[in-house]
Nucleic acid binder design. Structure first.
Lengths: 212, 212
DNA sequence: ACCTGAACACCGTTCAAGT
DNA sequence: ACCTGAACACCGTTCAAGT
């Protein structure tokens, strides 16, 4: 099934997931890199619906080249924001090392929501990560965030501060929803924290009040 | 300031808001009506982003005619769904007559979320209604829903089952957010009720547990 | 092996010409 | 007073031709 390594080439350098990264032509590598940088900038400026043609033009490549490297808008978005997503996932563990599980989960949800609002273009990605069974369910970003959410959820279950019927997928979906809700307000950032706090109160097992 | 009645014409028939409805040419009235019917059908088929050109074509009118009657997509969406929105607002009072305020609010939030998911094209409208200060803040749909939400919220405040710092605008935003969250799942309708229940638990004043 | 950019299909919006 | 539809600008996507 695997196409990796086909052709009898000696094993080359491998990427973060262990997939073989075959050496590209120098111009291809340059274009790839340039497209990523430009895409991140343009998405930030114009939002996740930015014109792909503009990205190609600004990167100085033909539109066909963009499609060759990133066959879908989603693929480009993901590639442009992997590092942000991974940073968000890494935050989960930092926070977990600092706070008790319930509070850590709440804090991470806040940061997730804030990131979704602040970084234009990230919302579509988090939405895809939060969707299940869809065509993007198995993207790198999706599994990275889901794993982070799962680690926090499991700790909170053990601690007894998260309802056992609420799972990582629910948390990602709800974070996306609350970020969307906050984004409806003029200054959305002010609302995320509040909405997350309200929700998390409801996610505690019945009868267990907040300590605050 | 008011342009209504300008020109010295005798007062004609008035619409629901008291604005003068001047008699239109017969073809204009026909086109208006036909556009509304076709728009509702096409939005239901293709979603809120449906091609306006397709709507015009199916209605048998030139594209310019559509723009004459409905200068923006939002205006067309709103006109096509006013009755649904008003039905949702009316439900608020029906429910309030049947259940204690806290439960009524929860039930209405469930129905609002479900409607948002079920009726394609409604989401953009509820989003606009939930947004504040935006260009659509004063649409008919917006104020209708906000008034309904406000009535439920005030009753729940008096009863002491809704935090006093959560207002009607918050409720609309959160309903929209939870509908969005649910819509990320394969079968979104199954999640709305659950997500609403979880949230509403968090919207109770501190220390007040559910009676369930 | 990779890139280019013309070509195609589609969409929203405007507006001169019609009745 | 209202309608029509061509015209324009824009976008995504494909693919024959190049190097």
């Amino acid at each position: 099934m695997s196409q990796v390594g086909a052709g009898g080439r000696p094993a080359g350098p491998t990427g973060p997931e262990g997939a073989a990264v075959r050496p590209r032509r120098a111009d291809a590598r340059r274009n790839h890199q340039r497209l990523l940088e430009v895409a991140a900038a343009v998405f930030a400026e114009r939002g996740e619906g930015a014109s792909l043609d503009e990205i190609a033009k600004r990167a100085g490549v033909g539109s066909g080249t963009l499609y060759r490297h990133f066959p879908t808008r989603q693929a480009l978005l993901e590639a442009a924001y992997v590092d942000r997503i991974e940073a968000l996932a890494a935050r989960a563990d930092e926070i977990a090392g600092r706070l008790p599980p319930g509070e850590a989960l709440t804090e991470w949800m806040r940061e997730l929501g804030l990131g979704t609002i602040r970084i234009r273009g990230l919302r579509a990605l988090l939405g895809a990560a939060a969707a299940q069974g869809g065509s993007f369910a198995d993207t790198v970003c999706g599994s990275t965030l889901r794993d982070a959410a799962r680690r926090l959820a499991e700790a909170a279950w053990r601690e007894g501060t998260l309802r056992p019927d609420v799972d990582a997928q629910d948390l990602l979906r709800l974070a996306h929803g609350l970020a969307t809700a906050s984004g409806l307000a003029e200054d959305g950032e002010q609302y995320v924290g509040r909405y997350v706090d309200l929700l998390m109160e409801g996610l505690r097992p019945r009868g267990r009040a907040a300590r605050g």
